[in-house]
């Protein structure tokens, strides 16, 4: 565990928790793409299939449980909570799941480190995480509304991406045989897409006068 990895995990965790707490507190999910949040929940569910079979560390297990719990809680709030669900704008959140999920399944089946169920699911989760932000991007472009997407959420997600790449560079030079092309390439694609997200966010912020950052 290096400092980049720990900081990356913490910012990733914070991004999810900030979103969950915000939805819980203001009882609104306006501007948030349910599809992106559902895809993230699928990402964690398919990636952490090893949670009860391969023990890595207490830290690892607890973090996995928190990610699973918080991502499914966000989806529950948007779909089921009697007040929050009214603020969800279904008509704007139109990205089709199949365009994201099917290519990821296909890619995971042909490009993976090992052709086993767990390994293919793990690989699928990496590909899916890389593109799961797309429905959120489409929603953002369509509504041009960034007020409801907190500055913190965007900032923390971006910090997580950047720190994970630094972590990989660090591990590449400090650990023998640390070469993982699949997560690296998927991670770089994800970071580039995030850059697009950040661009719109910044652009709106620049033109749009006031962006309310939560306290």
């Amino acid at each position: 565990m290096n400092i980049f990895r720990l900081a990356g995990d913490m910012t990733h965790l914070a991004s999810v928790l900030v979103l969950l707490l915000k939805i819980h507190t203001i009882k609104s999910c306006a501007g948030i793409s349910l599809k992106t949040q559902e895809l993230y929940a699928i990402v964690f569910a398919t990636r952490y299939l090893d949670i009860f079979t391969d023990f890595i560390s207490l830290y690892n297990t607890i973090m996995k449980l928190i990610f699973l719990g918080s991502s499914f809680s966000i989806v529950w709030y948007i779909r089921q909570h009697k007040i929050v669900r009214r603020s969800y704008d279904k008509d704007q959140d139109t990205f089709r799941y199949v365009f994201i999920v099917l290519p990821c399944i296909f890619l995971a089946l042909i490009i993976n480190e090992k052709f086993t169920f767990k390994e293919v699911m793990w690989t699928f989760s990496l590909y899916l995480e890389a593109v799961a932000i797309l429905p959120q991007l489409v929603l953002l472009q369509r509504t041009r509304n960034i007020d409801n997407l907190t500055g913190q959420y965007v900032f923390l997600l971006g910090a997580y991406r950047a720190l994970y790449i630094l972590n990989w560079i660090y591990r590449y030079f400090t650990e023998p045989h640390y070469i993982h092309w699949i997560p690296w390439i998927a991670g770089i694609v994800q970071t580039l897409l995030y850059g697009d997200f950040f661009y719109y966010y910044f652009h709106s912020w620049k033109n749009n006068k006031k962006l309310q950052l939560p306290a």
Partner: peptide, 10 residues
């Protein structure tokens, strides 16, 4: 040294 089994990143 061989790579450890499993994926240790989140």
């Amino acid at each position: 040294k061989e790579q450890p089994q499993g994926h240790d990143e989140l």
